[in-house]
Nucleic acid binder design. Structure first.
Length: 922
RNA sequence: GCCCGGAUGGUGGAAUGGUAGACACGCAAGACUUAAAAUCUUGUGACCAUCGCGGUUGUGCGGGUUCAAGUCCCGCUCCGGGUACCA
């Protein structure tokens, strides 16, 4: 009979569920820990063996913390809105809600089999009206807020209106789309519509004409983090730049706080660095250039104010508002031709073929430091969205300007002593300034500083910090997402009343855009909002995927509250997430938006912590490990891996589930595909050995391993231990079922410590010193490892301990009891079973994690390694903590030393207590 | 191009600067068995060896610091990830 894992696991999973073992409530006298997994998007393919990796790690941590007496919040839910369900709906007509529900059920059943300690009473789904009510609510609060740089905080828009009424825009430092200036008098005489238009310029959730990533194939716009190299991340379709009226979130207002916050959270340095780069702070100056022959000036941003004397031309982005203004009559046709051409180029094409292109606008600007007249060009190497959409070009010291100058034969003036710019630009910020008027003789760094001061003093511009971080485009022209709680009156957007939330997603007949090109919601009947008996149209776009995932961790704290996103009591108790585990792919998306969203709620006083995730661990990706068979060309004969060189062969992917330790199950292979029914094999040592390669885990490579199958064959505890044993949590690694037997054997050995011939065989005798030493070594190691997320070495420690106890034939209850509790976070089912077998009536989850006692770990004797000139020669055993001179004496008198000492003089002896003796001779 | 990681046996991987290769897989030999599977025991970096003494060599490459370097420093090579006309 022995270790019947299937029965045990089913039994205890039911017990945990029926007794609500993992349900938690706010318990003020108990310290809390909040452990969170990034909730999954329930895809149609179900979980593969890579998905639970992080879940297992967080589960171990949660269970461990609970054993230490903490009140552990460990919830799970679903990021249920998303493109795949909608694409599937378009193809099949199946409603995305149905597909999503089905997938959620599949995910749940798969997760249940692994034995996680989630509090399922707190489950959330982003597509449920009870949940997205609060997504919509937060959006309205953003709509009704502006951001003040003065107090570095979001403030209610009503405050701003009051300020405008009294002082206009005077002395205000606000986050805005474009900077406006007006007096109180001017404001007060504006119409309602004009006022609304102005306020839109300041709202944190705002509607504006912005350049967006438009994906024609998906029929929607995408945020910057949803596009990579001009291709949509979901689906891989080309994306183009287009100016459209869209909802955006003013994330950029929080750029500095998002940057500063990184210093106080415990995330990996590489992830913080990725966010720092994405936020992209750069210090520089905004400098005003006058346009010759026009009473007009425009600003450019530069980090190299020191190079002002080397400006030989200016460049505008093709989309810049300055283009029509500065284009002269003579150049109008040429400019228009250029604009038409660049507009046609997709982002992808621009990246793929980085040819220098551009056109002269006809206008000249005036260099503010020396009055030189410089031509203004237009080129797509300047981006409209960064800085001011215009640059001063210094070809001598910027490689992009250099390429442009060479191509159009524009002058290049070197400004740094000794810089050779005949073949390439000199971009480094080092050297001595020349040809630079008042900057001559300074180093580049000094010159940057001096130039900035000069610009400010002479009112040529001002010092400025720029951020690469853009506002998040928040509209999606899709069906399967949260509807906006916004209606239109007189063409202007207004939020619906809070008591009318949620605005539920309407039913529609088809999941496609309307014939007139409106988003799918244009098909909904009665998609209107009634106010005082008047009907107004509702917004047709829906929110993007990150809307629902930005504050979900808060909702777990109080999932059923219909009065607030989270009550302040619940939030003050659970606060923020202590440990967040998830993939690094969310570094510039979800993890930025969540931090932004949380900071906004913090400003409003809704949450008590400024940062949502205190500590974050990125689990590595689990790749697939594909297997190959080798078919001899033009035959149905397959040759084993090591013999394949003798033939001309084609490698063919074979399902990894019919291969074991790289040995092919020939019968299953014949049954796998009718084509191979009569396949012949050339074997080696009676076996067919397959080749292998590491690839992405995917259906087409036949390398997907379903956790259900592993659980069925080896049990959930083996799966959990094996996933941890595979390697360091944060490292990417291929899934390789070879080796799982070793972990499974360990659990059987553990079982056999308790049972002899199916009889429980445990005695009450007090443990001896050796047994205590073994178990305390384990307790110490595992406690250290869990805090450091070094689970693979913990599993090794368990194996060592069980081997030792087996060798000692230990069946002492006291020792085995501790062993089970220490193992419980890793292998909860077998631990629970054995815990009850020992006569305990309560769950092992409520046991106390044992403390280790140093006194059992002390050795009476230690082994010294003796080296001569750094080379280890022999070892000797001495009593622990022997004084250094005595160690030295013992070593030098040792007979093994004589041969190394012969004919040499001792120059130096180093004694490392309890470890090493190194003798330098010569 | 820039910014992070990483490189250790046949394989996955262990090693607060302390004298490599924990643990596991695989492999080999042995025990049990009519046999196989399972289980158990032993061995297993490479090379040399009068194969149960003993020795040489060894953590991507080249230098350096140190009594002592996989680990620290300098210079490379290769691999992985992120990001990119960001002025």
């Amino acid at each position: 009979m022995g270790y019947n894992f299937n029965e045990i696991e089913k039994k205890w999973q039911a017990y945990w569920r029926n007794n609500k073992i993992y349900h938690v409530t706010e318990t003020p006298d108990k310290a809390k820990i909040y452990v969170l997994d990034m909730f999954p998007y329930p895809s149609g393919a179900g979980l593969h063996v890579g998905h639970p990796l992080g879940y297992i790690a967080s589960d171990i941590y949660s269970r461990y913390k609970r054993l230490q007496g903490y009140n552990v919040l460990h919830p799970m839910g679903y990021d249920a809105y998303g493109l795949p369900a909608e694409q599937y709906a378009i193809q099949t007509g199946q409603h995305p809600a149905i597909t999503t529900l089905k997938n959620i059920e599949r995910y749940r059943s798969q997760m249940d089999k692994i034995g996680f300690c989630y509090d399922w009473d707190r489950e959330i789904r982003t597509c449920e009206p009870d949940y997205y009510k609060w997504t919509q609510w937060a959006f309205i609060r953003m709509f009704e807020s502006y951001y003040s740089y003065e107090v570095q905080q979001a403030r209610p828009i009503s405050e701003l209106i009051a300020t405008f009424e009294q002082q206009g825009t005077q002395n205000l430092n606000l986050a805005c789309t474009e900077s406006l200036t007006f007096t109180a008098e001017e404001w007060n005489v504006k119409t309602e519509k004009e006022k609304q238009a102005i306020l839109m310029n300041y709202r944190i959730a705002y509607l504006a004409d912005t350049m967006v990533n438009w994906c024609p194939a998906l029929g929607t716009v995408l945020a910057n983090d949803e596009v990579s190299e001009g291709i949509s991340i979901r689906g891989g379709y080309p994306v183009e730049q287009r100016k459209m009226r869209q909802w955006s979130l003013r994330v950029s207002a929080y750029a500095q706080r998002l940057l500063d916050g990184l210093n106080v959270i415990d995330w990996t340095e590489s992830l913080k660095e990725t966010q720092r780069n994405w936020i992209g702070r750069s210090e520089g100056a905004e400098i005003l250039f006058k346009v010759k022959a026009l009473d007009y000036e425009f600003p450019v941003f530069t980090t190299r104010a020191d190079t002002l004397f080397g400006v030989t031309f200016m460049v505008l982005a093709p989309e810049s508002d300055l283009v029509p203004l500065l284009t002269t009559e003579a150049q109008r046709e040429a400019v228009q031709k250029y604009l038409d051409k660049t507009k046609k180029r997709t982002e992808r094409e621009r990246i793929a073929d980085r040819k220098v292109t551009g056109v002269f606008s006809g206008s000249y600007a005036v260099n503010p430091v020396n009055g030189t007249e410089i031509p203004v060009w237009i080129s797509d190497y300047v981006l409209a969205g960064y800085g001011t959409g215009a640059i001063m070009a210094v070809p001598a010291h910027d490689s992009r300007d250099y390429a442009f100058a060479k191509h159009f034969h524009l002058p290049i003036i070197p400004l740094i002593e000794g810089a050779d710019v005949s073949n390439e630009s000199f971009d480094a910020k080092e050297g001595m300034m020349v040809n630079s008027g008042f900057l001559n003789g300074l180093t580049v760094k000094e010159a940057i500083q001096k130039a900035k001061e000069y610009i400010a003093e002479q009112h040529l511009g001002h010092v400025k910090v720029n951020y690469r971080l853009r506002d998040a485009i928040f509209s999606r022209q899709r069906y399967w997402g949260e509807p906006f709680p916004i209606y239109y009156k007189d063409g202007m957007p207004y939020p619906v009343a809070l008591e009318d939330l949620p605005i539920k997603l309407p039913e529609i007949d088809k999941f496609l855009p309307t014939e007139s090109g409106e988003p799918p919601l244009g098909r909904a009947k009665d998609w209107i909002y009634e106010e005082n008996g008047v009907k107004y149209p509702l917004e047709l776009a829906t929110m993007p995927g990150f809307a629902g995932s930005s504050a979900y961790y808060l909702r777990y704290e109080d999932p059923c509250n219909d009065k607030a996103l989270v009550s302040s009591e619940a939030n003050r108790y659970w606060r923020n997430v202590d440990l967040y585990i998830g993939g690094t792919e969310h570094a510039t998306g979800h993890l930025i938006y969540s931090r932004f969203w949380n900071k906004f709620l913090f400003d409003l006083g809704i949450v008590c912590e400024d940062e949502p995730f205190k500590r974050l661990i990125n689990q590595g990706m689990i790749q697939g490990r594909s297997n190959f068979v080798y078919r001899i060309k033009d035959t149905n004969t397959f040759v084993s891996f090591n013999l394949r060189a003798q033939y001309e062969v084609t490698p063919i992917h074979v399902d990894v589930n019919i291969v074991s330790n790289d040995v092919l199950d020939i019968e299953k292979f014949r049954a796998w595909n009718p084509e191979y029914k009569n396949a012949e094999f050339i074997l080696e040592s009676g076996k067919y050995i397959c080749g292998w390669a590491v690839e992405k885990m995917s259906k087409s490579m036949y390398n997907v391993v379903n956790p259900d199958d592993i659980v069925e064959k080896y049990g959930a505890d083996t799966l959990r231990l094996y996933e941890m044993f595979l390697g360091p949590l944060e490292q990417s690694k291929p899934w390789d079922t070879n080796g799982i037997d070793g972990v499974h054997r360990f659990l059987r050995k553990l079982w056999n410590l308790f049972y002899k011939n199916d009889n429980l065989c445990v005695c009450e005798t007090s443990p001896n010193l050796e047994e205590l030493k073994s178990i305390h070594k384990l307790i110490k190691k595992v406690s250290y490892d869990i805090e450091h997320f070094s689970f693979n070495t913990s599993v090794a420690a368990f194996m060592i301990c069980v081997n030792e106890l087996t060798g000692l034939q230990c069946n002492k209850k006291a020792v085995l009891s501790d062993l089970i509790v220490v193992l419980a976070p890793f292998a909860p089912h077998i631990a629970e079973e054995l815990w009850h077998a020992l006569g305990n009536t309560t769950t092992v989850c409520d046991a106390r994690f044992p403390d280790f006692d140093e006194k059992y770990l002390k050795e009476s004797h230690v082994v010294y390694t003796v080296s001569f000139n750094g080379k280890a020669r022999f070892t000797i055993e001495l009593p622990v903590n022997t004084a250094a001179p005595d160690v030295e004496k013992a070593v030098l008198n040792h007979q093994n030393s004589q041969k190394w000492l012969e004919g040499n003089t001792i120059r130096k002896v180093i004694v490392v207590p309890n470890k090493i003796v190194n003798i330098v001779v010569g």
